[in-house]
Design a protein around this nucleic acid. Structure first.
Lengths: 123, 123
DNA sequence: ATTGACCTTCACACTAATGTCACCCATCGA
DNA sequence: TCGATGGGTGACATTAGTGTGAAGGTCAAT
């Protein structure tokens, strides 16, 4: 599929799709005319990348962990350098921290909203 | 306390403490000589702010939701405009999404690491 | 009285993730 | 063949969060 379709299917500006490619987060083949040609799986890939970006991971890290998060859950194990393992462990721990922080604040907001609503109802 | 102490206690560069103040995320009084003078609670506040930043919330949003997340759990209810409630609900939902995304990827990494370790042990 | 640590403001700079615009080529339908 | 539409590259702009350094005050201790 070409970039326009990928863009609408992933709700992502073409500009960003090109950017992600530049950052080596996704890949494309080229049609004879130079147009980008994406394979089907890239759709999921883009969504996953955007999820991770949105969650605060930098492209640099995403690029590193992506091979381990392959959508066709083929845990195909490349050269897993100890270095790589370390990165993964570090990121995993950071994620855990983030989850905790988010959960706490999510709860705080929820509580607050509840209180507000009770307040409104009472007045 | 002055900025140096706050900086070491929160592990945060002074530069950023000033920046947070500029963004109205924290406040300070001034000593007669112009030095910033922080109250004790600011320590927690800074940590909270950094947690939220790290988790991907922009200062703009943090500023808005901060009054509802006061550390001295005095749910002191200011003018809760409907607008404000809307923002809170939106952010809360976004947080939930992020938590989900993070959890999923956290799990994926964990699984992967497990697989790698099994692989190593087997070889 | 000077040094050194701590503080102030101002300002320039960088990176990441995006937006936007300019200019040109390709494709396809009228 | 013309024009709309879709694509390609490149470059400059922007915002957020930081780093860093200049130039200058304050203060405590020597």
């Amino acid at each position: 599929m070409r970039i326009g379709e990928l863009s609408t299917r992933t709700q992502t500006p073409m500009r960003l799709l090109r950017y992600y490619e530049e950052q080596e987060l996704i890949e494309s083949n080229r049609l004879p005319n130079g147009y980008r040609d994406y394979e089907e799986y890239v759709v999921d890939r883009v969504l996953q990348v955007r999820g991770l970006l949105d969650v605060g991971l930098p492209t640099r890290i995403i690029k590193q962990i992506l091979p381990c998060l392959n959508t066709p859950r083929t845990i195909h194990m490349p050269y897993v350098t100890p270095d790589m393992v370390a990165t993964l462990e570090r990121e995993r721990d950071r994620m855990a921290e983030k989850i905790e922080c988010l959960t706490k604040n999510h709860q705080a907001i929820t509580d607050y909203l509840d209180a507000v609503r009770r307040n409104i109802r009472a007045s």
